[in-house]
């Protein structure tokens, strides 16, 4: 009976030792498997992060390189279109210039109608009582003829009187008028060439894009 008891106790102790060992082994391997999962998960995450980083960098680099190539094409195309636009505008301006030159050279009714208004505008804007009117030789007579009408118009509209001296010192190929104050310190240029340049510069873009 005692031997039997001893055997049972011993078996129980050995079983206990084996069970403790089993538990420990289970714990060790379980922990290792857990760590393995963590390591692999972390590797996946790190790889994804790295991939994103690399991809972003490559995309940025590719974009820069390709944009550089394309920007030359863009500029070149834009230049081509601008050139076409410029040609259209130039032909328009040239045609307008030709008509203006024709009108002023032949001294048309339209030119003298306008000249009277240019003269009036210049005198009004200069706002002086004594003025010198500069015109070319050809127009002198016409301006002398229209001066009285301009005088009356300004007097009526602005209640202003003025004395004017006419000088035909404008070159023959220049048309319109320049009005100076008698002390020559102030002036108003209303020549045809300056007006043409002014309207081309100031109003052409507006006219061209008017819808």
């Amino acid at each position: 009976m005692r031997v039997q008891e001893e055997r049972e106790i011993l078996a129980a102790l050995i079983k206990e030792i084996e069970k403790a060992a089993d538990d420990e082994i289970k714990k060790i391997l379980g922990e290792a498997e857990k760590q393995k999962v963590e390591i692999l998960k972390e590797a996946e995450e790190r790889a994804l992060k790295e991939r994103k980083k690399k991809e972003m960098e490559i995309r940025r680099k590719a974009r820069m390189e390709i944009l550089k190539e394309l920007s030359f094409k863009r500029i070149s195309y834009r230049k081509k279109i601008l050139l076409e636009k410029y040609k259209l505008i130039t032909s328009l301006v040239d045609e307008a210039r030709k008509i203006v030159i024709d009108e002023v050279r032949k001294g048309s009714h339209l030119y003298y109608l306008g000249l009277e208004k240019l003269l009036e505008e210049a005198i009004i804007n200069l706002n002086k009582n004594n003025v010198i009117i500069i015109c070319n030789k050809r127009d002198r007579e016409n301006i002398e003829g229209m001066l009285q009408k301009v005088y009356e118009s300004i007097k009526e509209k602005y209640n202003r009187e003025f004395n004017a001296e006419i000088r035909s010192t404008l070159p023959d190929d220049e048309y319109g008028v320049i009005v100076l104050s008698s002390d020559k310190r102030e002036y108003y240029i209303n020549t045809i060439s300056s007006r043409f340049d002014y309207y081309i510069k100031e109003y052409l873009p507006e006219l061209l894009y008017k819808k």
Binding site: L110, L113, E121, I200
Partner: peptide, 10 residues
């Protein structure tokens, strides 16, 4: 442009 230059519209 012609009219503005010549001053006809003033």
């Amino acid at each position: 442009i012609v009219m503005l230059t010549l001053g006809v519209n003033l």
